[in-house]
Amino acid sequence: MSYQEIAKDMIDKLPADKMIYVINILENLGEMYGISLYPNYEPNKETLEAIEEVDNMIKEGVGEHFEGSTTDFLNGILGE
């Protein structure tokens, strides 16, 4: 079994909420050796539509600008 296969097997056994640590380690290794490990990210249709919606809101000067903490923002959305 190759090192890559061993690493992939180990990663598959980790809970999803711990993957950020693996990503951070890989990013640091890449930086140490001058290798770009960042994946090619292509946003899905829903994300592209959301980006376009925000761009149009900015161009047209519509929408609501919020200033405050994330907690305040979420409480406002959730009506708490």
Rank of each mutant, 00 (worst) to 15 (best):
M1D: 04
M1Y: 05
S2R: 13
S2D: 13
Y3A: 11
Y3K: 13
Y3I: 14
Q4C: 06
Q4M: 08
E5R: 11
I6A: 10
I6G: 02
I6M: 12
I6W: 11
A7M: 15
A7C: 13
A7L: 15
K8R: 15
K8Q: 14
K8S: 10
K8G: 07
D9E: 15
D9S: 15
D9C: 06
M10W: 10
M10L: 12
I11R: 02
I11G: 00
L14D: 00
P15Q: 02
P15M: 04
A16V: 15
A16G: 02
K18D: 09
M19S: 03
I20M: 11
I20F: 10
I20L: 08
V22Q: 01
I23H: 01
I23K: 04
I23Q: 03
N24M: 13
N24H: 06
I25C: 06
I25V: 14
E27W: 05
N28I: 11
N28L: 13
G30M: 03
G30Q: 03
G30P: 00
E31G: 01
M32P: 00
M32L: 11
Y33F: 14
Y33S: 04
Y33H: 07
G34D: 00
I35L: 08
I35R: 04
I35T: 08
L37D: 03
L37M: 15
Y38G: 02
P39W: 06
P39C: 01
P39Q: 04
N40E: 15
N40L: 13
E42S: 08
P43S: 05
P43F: 09
P43H: 08
P43L: 12
P43K: 09
N44W: 07
K45D: 14
K45Y: 10
E46W: 05
T47C: 06
T47F: 07
T47N: 05
L48E: 11
E49D: 08
E49G: 00
E49R: 14
A50N: 12
A50P: 01
A50G: 03
A50T: 10
I51K: 08
I51L: 11
I51A: 06
E53I: 11
V54H: 05
V54R: 11
V54Q: 07
D55T: 13
D55A: 12
N56W: 13
N56T: 14
M57V: 06
M57R: 15
M57C: 07
I58Q: 02
K59F: 07
E60I: 04
E60V: 02
E60N: 03
G61F: 03
G61R: 05
G61P: 00
V62D: 01
V62A: 01
E64C: 02
E64G: 00
E64W: 05
E64Q: 06
H65F: 12
H65I: 15
E67Q: 08
E67T: 09
G68C: 02
G68A: 04
G68D: 06
S69A: 03
S69T: 15
T70R: 14
T71Q: 14
T71E: 15
D72K: 10
D72I: 04
D72T: 08
L74C: 04
G76D: 01
I77F: 05
L78K: 09
G79M: 04
E80Y: 08
E80M: 07
E80W: 07
